[in-house]
């Protein structure tokens, strides 16, 4: 898609000395799951790719270079750029130490959906509102809606608005029907006991690998309560109460701060629907505190401020 453009950008930036490292994507064994790749020399630019499977959000890696010299260039899609905005708002990253190579994102594909539509899929190209998948099994033309990641179907921010350079023309956002709201509403329609049973079942699969926390741009504390030995907030024992504690606290710690990038859900090896937790909080934040687009980081986060006339439910 934009592989040539990203290689050229990396080469130029590293050669000119504008940046000392460049964070992009490189192909994995499976071309449908490219992984994050750090390069530091212009000749390594050949390794980079930028295609319709580059889902990983690279923003969080910027924390790794917090104490290292030099400017870091990073390839960010619209959603990833919100992750950077989060880190900037939290004062974890200085803007002048980052060079944002923005990708106006046409949407990233869900590798599982793609593989289901065309087993052995290797590549995809966009053609209008369709994607053409190619692979060992031949070629197949599918509607964007069938193969895009769920998050991309409702993307409101495909183009980073704070990029130092853009790889292509800005892309308009898709109208946001907020289908996630339907998932939250379905849970809300259950009885309390049904919800309890639902979450107990979901959380019981959790292996506590912490990938959801580690990938999250909003989970950027220098030390985390889950790692604390004393006091021990979270037992390593994976019983029901501890699983509930972990998921409750993880979600609440990013309440009003989640940028809706869906990375937690994407990396979860056990497919726990973490965004159903995040979306519930996002909706409540917007509704209770009369905010719009609460997933966009702002100067002061919704829970870091108050209004004397906030709803009074506590008497």
């Amino acid at each position: 898609m934009r592989s040539e453009a990203v290689r050229a950008a990396a080469r130029r930036l590293l050669e000119e000395g504008k940046v000392v490292r460049f964070l992009g994507h490189a192909p994995g064994f499976d071309p449908t799951s490219p992984f994050p790749q750090l390069i530091t020399r212009a000749e390594e630019a050949e390794r980079l790719v930028l295609d319709h499977f580059c889902a990983p959000n690279l923003a969080k890696y910027l924390l790794d270079y917090e104490t290292q010299e030099g400017v870091t260039a990073v390839v960010l899609k619209g959603c990833d750029a919100l992750g950077l905005a989060r880190l900037l708002a939290d004062h974890r990253v200085a803007r002048d130490r980052v060079w944002v190579v923005g990708l106006p994102c046409p949407g990233m594909l869900d590798r599982d959906k793609a593989a289901a539509l065309l087993p052995g899929v290797q590549e995809a190209r966009a053609e209008g509102d369709e994607f053409v998948l190619t692979g060992a099994g031949g070629e197949r033309r599918v509607a964007a809606g069938q193969v895009l990641l769920d998050r991309c179907l409702v993307c409101a921010v495909p183009t980073p608005d704070d990029a130092d350079e853009l790889l292509g023309e800005p892309v308009p956002g898709r109208p946001v029907p907020r289908e996630e709201d339907a998932a939250v509403a379905a849970l809300e329609a259950m009885t309390s006991a049904e919800r309890k049973a639902y979450w107990t079942e979901q959380f019981s699969r959790c292996i506590r690998c912490m990938a959801c926390r580690n990938v999250c741009p909003a989970c950027n504390c220098r030390s985390c309560c889950f790692d604390s030995e004393e006091p021990r907030w979270l037992s390593r024992v994976t019983d029901g109460p501890a699983q509930e504690m972990f998921h409750f606290v993880r979600a609440l710690h990013v309440a009003g701060r989640c940028v809706d990038c869906h990375e937690c859900e994407r990396v979860c090896p056990m497919d726990i629907p973490l965004m159903k937790l995040n979306h519930k909080l996002l909706q409540d934040v917007e509704e209770l505190f009369e905010l719009e687009r609460a997933f966009v980081p702002r100067e002061v986060e919704p829970l870091g401020i108050y209004r004397p006339d906030d709803p009074e439910e506590f008497a």
């Binding site: 292996i207 690998c209 990938a211 580690n214 390593r236 024992v237």
Partner: peptide
């Protein structure tokens, strides 16, 4: 250094691995 740069420091690989066997003891 190069290959570790992208590690998320999560436990997916070790916890899903059939041969990884490290453990800790905890007193509750």
């Amino acid at each position: 250094e190069q290959i570790a740069a992208r590690c998320l420091s999560c436990g997916i690989c070790t916890y899903t691995c059939p041969t990884c066997h490290c453990f800790q003891l905890t007193d509750e």
